[in-house]
């Protein structure tokens, strides 16, 4: 039982990170219909940003979330402006290959600059933990989880209760109609891409705290994020959160209970992708009205 609860708690903490990464992928897909392979690398850059800033200044990485988000916001907009934006009207496969190229480039720049070492941050209170019953919780990990939740909350608020959020929703549903109600569709695309990169930056901070920082950390995460987006659909954040929990918990349980399970756990997300795509060929992507 204890093991079960511990696995559950670990799963939930990981789910927070997954949901945050998936959210960024999702808004770009939903609003400009682009699958951004490079999103994982944005997370990776965020993680290195956090790591190096911590090494240089010793400031708690969780406090760095804001400047990292800001920097990534600007980077995201620049990348959109010069690469993704110009091919928006081209076949989706061109966009996929383009973002893949960006992903490959960023990954290898990171390899070149910082080699393949796994890096981790250790703050003074890294070992501080508290217990609820028999469950042991690291304060640092919980704080990182809360940061992920907070970011999702901010995004959720922005997309639902602000005029810009309404514009994002409008653009995701109908671009012609959006421009006919006075929405500058290009700006919405630009800002959305920037915002997605910013969330990736925050996710990177969480990664640097919860896991290790290395050049292909984003590539590992992006495939899981795909699985979540495919499973959860484009409709509501609820779908994304549930899908993140499903994935993270099943990974956690498989890792805990199946013999040498951590290896099998890696495959869970891929099996989910395959099962969902085959059983719902239209993809859960198209399903918006299950909210």
């Amino acid at each position: 039982m204890e093991m079960f609860i511990q696995a559950t708690v670990n799963g939930i903490i990981t789910a927070g990170l997954y949901a945050l990464v998936a959210y960024g992928l999702l808004i770009v897909l939903g609003i400009m219909n682009v699958v951004n392979f490079a999103h994982g690398e944005f997370v990776m850059i965020g993680a290195y940003f956090s790591y190096w800033a911590f090494i240089a200044t010793g400031v708690d990485p969780l406090l760095l979330a804001l400047p990292v988000a800001l920097a990534m916001f600007l980077c995201g907009m620049a990348i959109y402006k010069f690469t993704v934006g110009p091919v928006l009207r081209e076949p989706s496969i061109n966009q996929l290959v383009l973002t893949f190229g960006i992903s490959l480039t960023l990954q290898n720049v990171a390899l070149l600059l910082w080699n393949a070492d796994l890096r981790s941050i250790s703050v003074p209170y890294a070992d501080v933990s508290f217990s609820i019953g028999s469950i042991n919780l690291g304060v640092f990990r919980v704080a990182a989880f809360l940061l992920a939740c907070l970011s999702i909350g901010i995004l959720q608020f922005t997309t639902h209760y602000t005029r810009f959020g309404k514009a994002m929703q409008a653009v995701s549903q109908n671009k012609t109609a959006s421009s006919l109600v006075g929405i500058n569709v290009n700006s919405v695309h630009l800002l959305t891409f920037g915002a997605a990169a910013a969330t990736a930056g925050v996710a990177g901070v969480v990664v640097s705290v919860l896991m290790y920082t290395f050049p292909t950390v984003g590539a590992h995460l992006i495939l899981k994020a795909f699985a979540i987006v495919i499973l959860g659909g484009l409709g509501s954040i609820l779908g994304t959160i549930i899908a993140s929990l499903v994935l993270a918990l099943s990974e956690s349980y498989v890792g805990t209970y199946v013999p040498s399970g951590s290896g099998w756990a890696e495959g869970v997300s891929f099996l989910l992708i395959i099962a969902v795509l085959i059983m719902r060929p239209q993809g859960l992507f198209g399903v918006r009205d299950h909210d």
Binding site: V87, V97, L98, G101, I102, L104, Q107, L111
Partner: peptide
């Protein structure tokens, strides 16, 4: 020639191909 990151050129070629030489 390089120990790490030799795939950078790959990535850049992809980007350039899609943007300028589809």
């Amino acid at each position: 020639t390089f120990e790490y990151g030799s795939l950078i050129v790959y990535g850049l070629l992809l980007i350039v191909s899609i943007l300028f030489m589809p």
